[in-house]
Amino acid sequence: MDIRKIKKLIELVQASDITELEIKEGEESIRLCRQPAVSASGQKAGVTIVNSPDAEAQTDQEDYDEETLLRSPMVGTFYLAPAVDAAPLVKLGQRVEQGEPVCIIEAMKMMNQIQAPHAGVVTALLCQSGDGVEFDQPLMVIE
């Protein structure tokens, strides 16, 4: 899908009262989700782009137990798979063991494997592959 079309769709979603828009053109699809306005707690506002109709990421801000959150140890780009055509390291509902690689964060051209801090089941993915992440940002929930 052309980047100009995507930018125009983002503008249309932001200018309207709709909270979600999904468009499919052949094999390509895009889903735009509006997040709530910035609150006093500093939560992000804007539009989240999900490039897959069966995306596994969660876009809404839910409350999770702090000990179940896997947080980013650095600023960088989040990836679920080591390569574009490779299988993801984890999927929703998958059981992981402590120390098992669950995602990758690219920082300064270095690929850093992030390991599960404890054994459990991946119950939520809070980022999409290719998303920029900040230090201490929640990436996924492992219960």
Rank of each mutant, 00 (worst) to 15 (best):
D2W: 01
I3V: 09
I3W: 04
I6Q: 10
I6T: 14
K7C: 04
K7T: 05
K8D: 06
K8W: 02
L9F: 13
I10Q: 04
A15T: 01
A15I: 01
A15G: 04
S16E: 00
D17G: 01
T19L: 11
T19I: 10
T19R: 14
T19A: 10
E20L: 01
L21Q: 02
L21W: 00
E22M: 11
E22C: 04
I23R: 08
K24L: 01
K24D: 03
E25L: 15
G26M: 12
G26H: 08
E27K: 13
S29L: 00
I30Q: 00
I30H: 00
R31G: 03
L32T: 01
C33T: 15
C33G: 02
C33N: 06
R34Q: 09
P36N: 13
A37N: 07
A40P: 04
A40L: 14
A40H: 14
S41D: 15
Q43A: 12
Q43R: 13
Q43P: 01
A45V: 00
A45G: 07
G46I: 01
G46T: 03
T48I: 14
I49A: 04
V50Y: 06
P53E: 15
D54S: 14
A55I: 03
E56A: 15
E56S: 15
Q58N: 09
Q61H: 14
Q61V: 13
E62Y: 13
E62D: 12
E62Q: 11
D63Q: 11
Y64E: 07
E66Q: 13
E67K: 14
T68C: 14
L69I: 09
L70T: 11
R71Q: 15
S72L: 14
V75H: 14
Y79T: 02
Y79A: 03
Y79W: 03
Y79C: 03
L80E: 07
P82T: 08
A83I: 03
A83E: 15
V84M: 10
D85F: 07
A86N: 09
A87P: 10
A87Y: 02
A87M: 12
P88A: 07
K91W: 02
L92T: 11
Q94P: 09
R95P: 12
R95I: 13
E97D: 10
Q98S: 15
Q98R: 14
Q98C: 06
G99A: 03
C103E: 10
C103N: 12
I104A: 06
I105F: 06
I105E: 11
E106W: 00
A107T: 07
M108A: 08
M110S: 10
M110K: 06
M110R: 06
M111K: 06
M111W: 12
N112M: 04
I114W: 07
A116V: 05
A116P: 10
P117E: 02
H118R: 08
G120S: 06
G120Y: 05
V121C: 08
V122H: 02
V122M: 04
V122R: 01
T123F: 03
A124L: 02
L125F: 07
L126N: 10
C127K: 15
Q128F: 05
Q128M: 07
S129T: 11
G130N: 05
G130E: 05
G130M: 03
D131R: 07
D131F: 08
V133F: 06
V133Y: 07
V133N: 13
E134C: 12
F135K: 14
D136Q: 15
D136L: 14
Q137G: 11
Q137D: 04
Q137R: 12
Q137L: 09
Q137I: 09
M140T: 15
V141S: 05
